[in-house]
């Protein structure tokens, strides 16, 4: 290309980018801290409005423990999102896992550990099924997982025979909800563990860096010789496994499973993932950010409940957070 045409395609000059760069250091600190600060503000507001109940040990443990299903599902949703895809079937995979645990244990007398293993295995298969159709057949993940999600949801109804199955062995609840460490249900620590593993792999391994490029600029990743298909397939499969864990936590928390259970957590899970992309590592879908976002959502809904708000307030909060999070993370990613 020669002089005249070069002028038309020249990228921004270096000078303004320097200014933008140095300015963005301060700006980024603000961005990184925005969500944790918002969480703190929320916490203080609720503590001031309802000091007796909100600051009680029971409530604090409730905030950390009760939202573990959401936490786990959000971590599942994080994986495909990070590699540039979207999986709308994760709620149904969680539901399928829950009903499998319940049916195997209650109706067929299968022991809890075996039932859970089967459920998690089926979750992995469902995730691989998504990966196969989205990646190998090169389809839009949005519409494809909407389809597979409905398919898995149909399986749940079929297996459950449209009824709620109760009376799952108490030992499962012991291992998830009832046993506590420092007053916090042990399942919260399972979520923390999964979050830390994801965080480590994403930020401290070569695989994490390759995954980052697959999600941010897939063409570049492919032309750098990265097997993007394998990474995306792996993300879908692992997401299925983690969503199935969320289903197991659901059964542990409620002692039962019905035709609809984990599905309702899908939207707040994505709210947490997108909200999480605005903090810790702004502009990137990241594990620690997702964790902070889950706590933010959990605090908000717990506080609203204590103040006596109706059920719809929780929906308003989740929905509002998702709308804001998507807009903000989109804005950050553009820069």
């Amino acid at each position: 290309m020669s002089a005249t045409e070069t002028v038309e395609t020249t990228d921004p000059q270096p000078a303004p980018s320097v200014a933008q760069g140095s300015g963005s250091v301060r700006g980024r600190w603000g961005e990184k801290a925005a969500l944790p600060v918002a969480w703190l503000v929320l916490f203080i507001v609720f503590a001031a409005l309802a000091p007796e109940t909100f600051l009680s040990m029971g409530n604090l443990s409730n905030i950390l423990g009760s939202q573990s299903i959401l936490f786990m599902l959000a971590l599942a949703a994080l994986l495909p999102t990070r590699s540039g895809d979207l999986d709308l079937s994760l709620g149904s995979i969680g539901g399928l896992s829950a009903i499998i645990v319940a049916v195997l244990n209650v109706n067929h007398g299968v022991s809890v550990p075996v039932a859970c293993l089967v459920a998690v295995g089926v979750g992995g298969l469902c995730g691989a099924f998504n990966g196969l159709f989205v990646v190998k057949f090169k389809t839009e993940p949005f519409i494809m997982t909407l389809g597979t999600g409905t398919l898995f949801g149909g399986l749940v109804f079929w297996i459950a025979n449209s009824t709620t199955i109760v009376g799952v062995d108490r030992s499962l609840s012991m291992w998830t909800y009832l046993r506590q460490i420092g007053g916090v249900p042990v399942q919260f620590f399972y979520c923390l563990l999964v979050m830390l593993v994801i965080w480590y792999v994403m930020n401290h391994t070569p695989l994490g860096v390759r995954n980052l490029f697959v999600g941010q600029s897939r063409e570049v990743a492919v032309l750098s010789g990265i097997n993007a298909d394998r990474i995306r397939f792996g993300a879908f499969t692992l997401a299925g496994v983690i969503a199935a864990l969320a289903g197991v936590l659901y059964v542990g928390t409620t002692g039962s499973a019905g035709p609809t259970s984990v599905e309702t957590f899908l939207l707040p899970a994505y709210a947490a993932v997108f909200l999480g992309a605005t903090t810790i590592q702004p502009g990137r879908f990241n594990a620690l950010g997702t964790g902070v976002a889950v706590l933010f959502l959990a605090t908000g809904t717990a506080g609203l409940q204590l103040l006596g708000a109706q059920d719809y307030a929780q929906q308003l909060f989740y929905g509002g957070a998702l709308v804001l999070a998507v807009a903000i993370s989109r804005y950050l990613r553009r820069n």
Binding site: Q216, V220, G283
Partner: peptide, 9 residues
């Protein structure tokens, strides 16, 4: 822009 750089990274 499309094939060689990941601008956000």
């Amino acid at each position: 822009r499309r094939d060689a750089i990941a601008p956000a990274v």
